[in-house]
């Protein structure tokens, strides 16, 4: 059958679609990043480095990395637990749990921040109780960790659930009958089967944690040099007309994002190599059994 007969496959349409995609990427995505770089470096590399070396900016970078270091592992563990429960067990309320995990996708981060204020703030539900215990949650790094966890909660679980559902439990059952303990089964059978999806989820989670603005800005209190993450610092510098500083901080954030993106690309290539290996055609050495390839 002629390919030209297929809907949406005309040469003209193809060119238009490619042009739209490429132009859109250039105008909406690449241009802003180029501008950030240009403005940050516009007053010379010295000014750029000076701007970065501001103690407050350095602190913001540190806090951002710390947040990622705390939040991503927690999310990885949570994601594995949730995905395992949902993919391999059947229990009442499973669908509800799946929906609940996805709430952060549909809730605006600002709303998330406000919810945490309502819960843990001085006038919040747990406020008096926390005050009595002498624990300050709001406007500290703990609040930043908490909202970041909320916002990125579905990232790892969402990557794992479809994969684990598709893979089923047979390999785990096989490991069990072969005498493996639960831990051995997890480390030697389950984890290798989900590692690419897991890393991919962790990278997405990391990117989101580092870039999160809305929720963090509500709960962090914007204390300079204390609870300002990099995105907040960018805004702060920009609002105080420190253009070079703002763009330098922004470019640092952009670099962090690009590193994440690079890691993701690398992973995808790796993942594809794995898939290619799985699908590799095989010369069958036993002709009599060659007819039954799954």
């Amino acid at each position: 059958m002629a390919a030209a007969g297929r809907v949406g496959d005309g040469p003209l349409l193809r060119r238009i679609l490619i042009a739209v995609a490429v132009t859109g990427t250039l105008v909406f995505l690449l241009a802003p990043i180029a501008v950030i770089g240009a403005l940050a470096l516009g007053s010379g590399i010295g000014a750029f480095l000076d701007a970065i070396a501001q103690p407050e900016t350095l602190h913001a970078i540190g806090l951002t990395v710390l947040t990622a270091v705390v939040v991503v592992p927690i999310n990885v563990v949570f994601g594995i637990c949730a995905a395992w429960a949902i993919a391999k067990f059947s229990f009442p309320g499973k669908r509800l749990l799946l929906t609940l995990i996805e709430i952060p996708f549909s809730v605006s981060p600002i709303v998330a921040g406000v919810m945490y204020i309502f819960l843990y703030g001085a006038q919040g539900l747990f406020g008096p109780w926390l005050q009595e215990a002498g624990v300050q949650v709001m406007f500290t790094v703990w609040a930043i960790f908490l909202v970041s966890l909320f916002v990125t909660c579905p990232f790892v679980a969402r990557e794992l659930i479809p994969l684990m559902q598709a893979q089923g439990s047979e390999e785990e059952e096989a490991a069990l009958t072969l005498g493996a303990s639960g831990f051995q089964t997890f480390v030697r059978v389950t984890l290798p089967n989900i590692k690419w999806a897991l890393l991919y989820g962790a990278i997405l989670c990391n990117a989101r944690v580092m870039g999160e603005f809305g929720a963090v800005s509500v709960v962090s209190g914007n204390v300079r040099g204390q609870t300002n993450t990099l995105p907040l610092q960018v805004e702060l510098l920009y609002n105080s007309y420190n253009t070079v500083g703002a763009f330098a901080a922004a470019s640092t954030l952009a670099v962090l994002a690009l590193l994440t993106l690079g890691a993701k690309l690398l992973l995808e290539r790796h993942g594809h190599v794995g898939e290619a290996l799985d699908a590799a055609p095989v010369p069958s050495t036993r002709l009599s059994l060659a007819g039954d390839r799954a």
């Binding site: 390999e171 059952e173 096989a174 069990l176 009958t177 005498g179 030697r188 290798p192």
Partner: peptide, 20 residues
């Protein structure tokens, strides 16, 4: 006893080989 303790050899319909 769990499957682990029973020492049974089990062969699955869809093989369940460890793919990695």
């Amino acid at each position: 006893l769990s499957a682990r303790e029973r020492r049974v050899g089990f062969v699955f319909q869809h093989y369940a080989l460890f793919r990695h």
